[in-house]
Write a protein that binds this DNA or RNA. Sequence first.
DNA 1: GGTTACCTACTTCAAGTGTAGTATGATAAT
DNA 2: ATTATCATACTACACTTGAAGTAGGTAACC
Lengths: 123, 123
Amino acid sequence: MKRLPDTELEVMKALWTTGPDTPRALLEEWLAPFGWAANTINTYLARLADKGFVAVRREGKSNLYTPLVGRDEYQAFDSRAVLDRLYGSPRNFVAALAREGMGQDELEELQALLDQLNGGRGK
Amino acid sequence: MKRLPDTELEVMKALWTTGPDTPRALLEEWLAPFGWAANTINTYLARLADKGFVAVRREGKSNLYTPLVGRDEYQAFDSRAVLDRLYGSPRNFVAALAREGMGQDELEELQALLDQLNGGRGK
DNA sequence: GGTTACCTACTTCAAGTGTAGTATGATAAT
DNA sequence: ATTATCATACTACACTTGAAGTAGGTAACC
C-alpha cells in the first residue's frame, strides 16, 4: 500500500462515509466545500482506481465507485508510516502533539483509550 | 510552515542529529544508506534553503548548512497536520496504531508519557 | 430526428519531487 | 604552469499531484 495524496484521500474519506457512490453524489454531498469542477473528481477517482483503492462499476448512466480499502485498514497502514517517517514511536508522536498544545478533551479521550487498551488485556 | 517531502525530511533529520554540517559529511555520516549521488544532497539542501528550513554559510571550501527549524518545532507542526489530514484526534490516531498492532513496549512508553502529562498537572 | 444535457475517457498543464548531470570555479598535486 | 580534484550553482528530466479542458457517446426533449 502507498500513502495517498491529499486530494485523493479526501475522495476516499467521502467514499468511506457514504459507501459506494457516484461522482456527482460525492461532489454534491461531501466534497462541495472544495469547490472542485465535476471533472476533477473523476480524475481523482480514476487515479484511485488505478491504484486499486476503489472499484468501478457501471450503474445505469453513471459510474459507481466502491472503496476496496477500508478506512480502518488505511489508517492502520498510514499511522505506522507516520511513525516511521519522523517519530519512531507512538510516544514521540504524542509528545509532539503535547508540545504543540493538546486540548484537555483530547488528552482525556486518549487517556480513556489507553485505559481500555490496557484494561482490556487484564492488567 | 509546509510539510516536507520524504527526501528533504531525511536531510533535516540528519541535520537535527548532527547540527550544522557540510553536504559531504551529511552524506557520509548519516545518509549513506540511501545511496544518493553527492549532487543529490546538494539539491535537497538547496530546496530546503529556499523553503527557509536551513541557512547556508561559506565555511572554507565547503558550504555549511544550519537548521533553522528545530526538530521539536517541526514535529509539533507535523503531528497536528497528521491529525487534520485523516484522524481528527490523538485518540483516533492511537486507535489506528493499536489496530495495526502496537508493541507492548510502545504501549507502556505511551502510558508513562500520559501519566506524566496528566500527573504533571496535579491530580 | 436534431438539439440539449450529462457522463465518462482521454488529454493537458503547471508545480512539486526524486534523482542526478553539466558547467564552472577554486584547490592541490605534479 | 598544467592537470587532476572537488565543491557548488545551475540545468535536466521523468514522474506525481492538483486541477481541469476537450471529445465523443447516450439518453431525454420537443
